[in-house]
Simulated scan of single mutants.
Amino acid sequence: MPIRHRLLAVVVAVLWGANFIAIHASLEVFPPFLCAALRFLLLAVPTVLLVPRPQVPTRWLVGYGIGFGILQFAFLYLAMDVGMPAGLASLVLQSSAPFTVVLGAVLLGERLSPRAAAGVGVAALGMAVVGSERLDAQAGLLPFVLTLLAGLGWAFGNLASRLAAAPRPLHLTMWMTVIPPLPLLLLSLLVEGPEQITAALADSWSVAAIPAWLGLAYTTLLATVLGSGIWTWLMARHPSGTVAPFSMLVPVTGLALAWLVLGETPAPLELLGGVLVVGGVLWASRTVRTKGTPAARHGDIRLEVHEESLEHTQVSPAR
């Protein structure tokens, strides 16, 4: 994976880490399923009118929308609404990375090198350290399980976007937003009810609701369009297990911003866990250079050998 692609993956991690603060602000006004529906509805309408449909099989477009859009955000927004702190949510949601690795191996036949597997293991250990420190004090079992389910939904979305192999990833990202609004609106109507929906929409026109709308704007434009667009572009060019570990950098941003903005003070063990997460991601993506030999050098140009033997192979969609 080239250095510039790793830097793009880090940018996405920062955008998505700040996204949890934006979601927290939006949930102060909107109930969770309605909030998730609005997030995608604001993009779906201009997408249908202005963006060409991506040239990908419909099944992978729908699968991406269901996994990444519906399952991830329905469970995540509900988890945060029932008590999952923003910082802890940013951590637990990164269960999507090991979920993606396992699903990629089971469903797509992708392999990980020992170094990559060890890196993912270290990062997962860091996630467990932070989670164990905060779980008992700030969130119960239900919010934790809901966030894990959100991570599983994200993992399925990762695989669908990779199998889609869109020639224009941003078009795939935009058209993914067409899938979630109606199912989420129906879920909101059934679970939250017309009265709660009406009350939330009425309150949203007050001055106090400005942070909620700003949060929606952030999740819509920066987290979804920019962040997911870059992520989809990376997933189309590299194996799932190579890209997915970078999502473990998200809780570093999420925990830091939750501390600064929401007063969620990280404990020493949480900081240790964050170090393990970063170290694991860097180790999993580390490139091994060959020593300078006539076969490996030509002038000042050195060849780089990645231990992930399948890093640049293409996966053909299952039929």
Rank of each mutant, 00 (worst) to 15 (best):
H298W: 10
R111I: 07
L170S: 03
L135Y: 15
M176N: 03
V275G: 05
L112M: 15
G153A: 11
S26M: 04
G121E: 06
S206F: 11
T290H: 15
E307Q: 14
L214Y: 07
F20A: 00
A36V: 03
G17Y: 11
G227I: 13
S206Y: 06
F40Y: 03
A128G: 01
L163Y: 00
I21C: 06
A164F: 12
I301S: 07
W205M: 08
L7C: 06
P143F: 12
V92G: 03
A284H: 02
A209R: 09
A244V: 07
V207F: 14
V56E: 00
L78F: 03
Q55E: 13
N158K: 03
P194T: 13
G17W: 09
G119K: 01
W154Y: 10
L112A: 15
L141F: 12
N19R: 10
L27A: 12
Q72P: 04
S113W: 07
G263V: 08
L34Q: 05
L159K: 04
G227Q: 09
L93P: 00
V29E: 02
G131D: 05
W231T: 01
F30I: 02
P181M: 01
L269E: 04
L260P: 08
R6I: 11
V288Q: 15
G241L: 14
L221E: 04
A137I: 13
G254W: 07
S161G: 14
D203V: 05
P143D: 09
H312E: 08
L50N: 00
L34V: 05
H306I: 13
V281Y: 02
V92E: 04
L201M: 14
T147I: 10
L257F: 13
L276A: 11
G17N: 04
C35L: 08
L149M: 15
A200T: 07
A236M: 02
G273A: 07
S26I: 06
V129G: 08
E264I: 05
A155S: 12
Y64W: 06
L190V: 15
G140K: 13
V82F: 14
D136K: 05
H312K: 11
L108S: 08
L8M: 14
R319T: 11
V82S: 14
T224K: 02
H24V: 05
L170V: 10
